[in-house]
């Protein structure tokens, strides 16, 4: 059984091996550029190593690493780190009774292209929940939102994706945006 040791080089190595792939994906979807994503991740882990002893529990460390990657992405983009609370989050959301059958979208590439059209504010929480398995509470902490706003944003994200799927179904136009290519392909 793995024992999460006190901060040590071996522990750092273990954590890097456990989480680097999923954190890379997060950075790549944020930056939409795999080379930039690797630079972000390298810098984020270098920063993390300098403050390694600040975090004790492993669930907290995982969320902490996501926060560092996010901050590094924002810094890298030359953005001012601002609260990303959307003024419109409080508005009522029109809820659909169903969603399009994802089986209509035959390949992951088609879905990936649709995801590439999603605004960043929707793509990020969708990634954190669908791909990483985070709860709304965990996403709220990373994105510096309230839990309620996060739940609303998740709902909006799924509805936005649904709209894109419907648009894509009726449109014959090719997707305008191609996302970063899969690794090694």
């Amino acid at each position: 059984m793995l024992k999460w040791l006190r901060p040590s080089p071996a522990h750092f190595d273990q954590v890097v091996r456990a989480y680097s792939a999923e954190l890379f994906r997060y950075a790549a979807w944020l930056a939409r550029d795999r080379h930039r994503a690797e630079n972000i991740l390298q810098e984020a882990f270098t920063r993390a190593w300098k403050s390694w002893s600040q975090v004790e529990s492993e669930p907290a460390r995982r969320a902490w690493l996501y926060t560092i990657v996010r901050n590094e992405f924002i810094r890298d983009a030359g953005r001012i780190k601002a609260r990303m609370e959307d003024a419109q989050e409080g508005e009522p959301v029109e809820l659909a009774d169903d969603i399009p059958d994802p089986g209509d979208f035959a390949t992951a590439v088609e879905i990936r292209d649709l995801l590439g059209k999603l605004p960043e504010k929707y793509l990020e929480p969708l990634f954190l929940q669908s791909a990483v398995g985070m709860s709304c509470e965990e996403i709220a902490a990373i994105m510096e939102l309230s839990v309620g706003a996060t739940m609303t944003r998740m709902t909006r994200a799924r509805m936005a994706l649904r709209d894109l799927m419907q648009d894509d179904t009726v449109s014959t136009a090719k997707p305008a945006l191609r996302l970063v290519q899969a690794g090694g392909k």
Partner: peptide
């Protein structure tokens, strides 16, 4: 979605 997100993978040796 998870499958589509997974399409982006790091180059070998990232860790």
């Amino acid at each position: 979605l998870a499958q589509a997100f997974d399409e982006v993978r790091p180059a070998p040796g990232l860790a």
